[in-house]
Design a protein around this nucleic acid. Structure first.
Length: 303
DNA sequence: CTTCTACCAGTACTCGCGCC
DNA sequence: GGCGCGAGTACTGGTAGAAG
């Protein structure tokens, strides 16, 4: 018995999806005649009518529905064959990775070192000059980055894979006598310094709902500047724990009275995420064994 | 408007043959 | 036995026109 061919299965799936031979032909970039030939040959091969034809289009018969389900599985498997063959051979080229500075400082070195050791033909350029979460997703959409470590929710249109989570903590002068558990009253009288980014503003808003009443005395754009002011006793702030590591002299951190954290994800545009080089980078970044090699992980800064 | 069929052209494959 | 070449065949995909 002649076996069905992959292109005939593609035609069947396309006709079912598009609802007509003409639509399937457009989707497959061939002529309607070719689709008609292909479907006819497939029906002859299987000895079953697979489609109801009408003036308004086509719908699968009962046999067609059964064959369609298997055909989709076969096409997925066929596609995965190509991926398996390309996996190692094509992990080469140039990728641009976008992230926050704190992520590049504390999380990337182990993963990138292992990746470049295993795939010397792959070069990864890191742009860690991002301050705003939305800017990372936009860099992916604009094509300025191939892969990014974004803060969830990442927005529509991106393929994401969960990464690490980082808690927000109180960052205060070391000279300030604080008792756990922290209460907002312990901070009365000290200026509050706001980090100017959407994530920190969101956390501050949630803290206010929980009784935190201090207005920002200053607003600064970088976490390191805020930590330096706190070290001088000039105020306190609410910052991601990773962003103030390693802790400067004269600064202490303490858990907030409410749980607040930022969840990171590795993100890419769907088409990029399918490419072998990008898949390799994502795999190395998400590798728990490599993450455990980072100092931040060993010190318990990550969740 | 859509599907089906006949016919045609280009390409890929198979097989036999001769040569080394 | 392995290799290259050419003829014949099969397959793929196109156009044009008929039919529902």
């Amino acid at each position: 018995m002649t076996k069905p061919k992959l292109n005939q299965l593609e035609m069947l799936v396309a006709v079912a999806d598009e609802g007509s031979f003409g639509g399937a032909a457009a989707a497959l970039d061939c002529t309607q005649s070719r689709v008609s030939h292909g479907i006819g040959e497939l029906e002859n091969t299987l000895g079953q009518r697979l489609l109801h034809r009408s003036r308004s289009g086509c719908t699968p018969t009962d046999a067609g529905h059964r064959v369609l389900a298997t055909a989709r599985q076969i096409l997925r498997l066929a596609a995965s064959l190509g991926d398996a063959a390309r996996e190692d051979a094509a992990v080469a080229g140039h990728l641009r990775l976008a992230c926050f500075r704190s992520v590049s400082t504390h999380l990337l070195p182990s993963a990138l070192a292992a990746l470049e050791a295993d795939h010397p033909g792959l070069r990864v350029d890191v742009d860690d000059g991002f301050e705003e979460r939305d800017a990372l997703a936009q860099a992916l959409r604009d094509g300025r980055a191939d892969v990014a470590i974004v803060q969830l929710p990442a927005g529509a249109g991106l393929r994401t894979r969960d990464y690490v989570a980082d808690s927000y903590v109180l960052v205060a002068p070391g000279s300030l006598a604080l008792r756990a558990p922290l209460s907002w009253e312990q901070l009365d009288g000290l200026p509050y310094i706001q980090l100017d980014c959407a994530g920190a503003l969101g956390v501050a808003a949630r803290c206010r709902e929980a009784g935190f009443a201090a207005p920002p005395a200053r607003t600064l754009a970088t976490d390191s500047s805020i930590a330096a002011l706190a070290a001088r006793g000039l105020g306190y702030s609410i910052l991601p724990r990773l962003a103030v590591h390693p802790l400067p002299d004269g600064v202490q951190t303490m858990p907030l009275p409410i749980p607040a954290r930022r969840q990171f994800a590795i993100a890419a545009m769907p088409a990029t995420a399918r490419e072998p080089a990008a898949r390799a980078l994502i795999r190395y970044l998400a590798n728990p064994a490599l993450q455990r090699q980072s100092e931040a992980y060993r010190k318990g800064l990550l969740e």
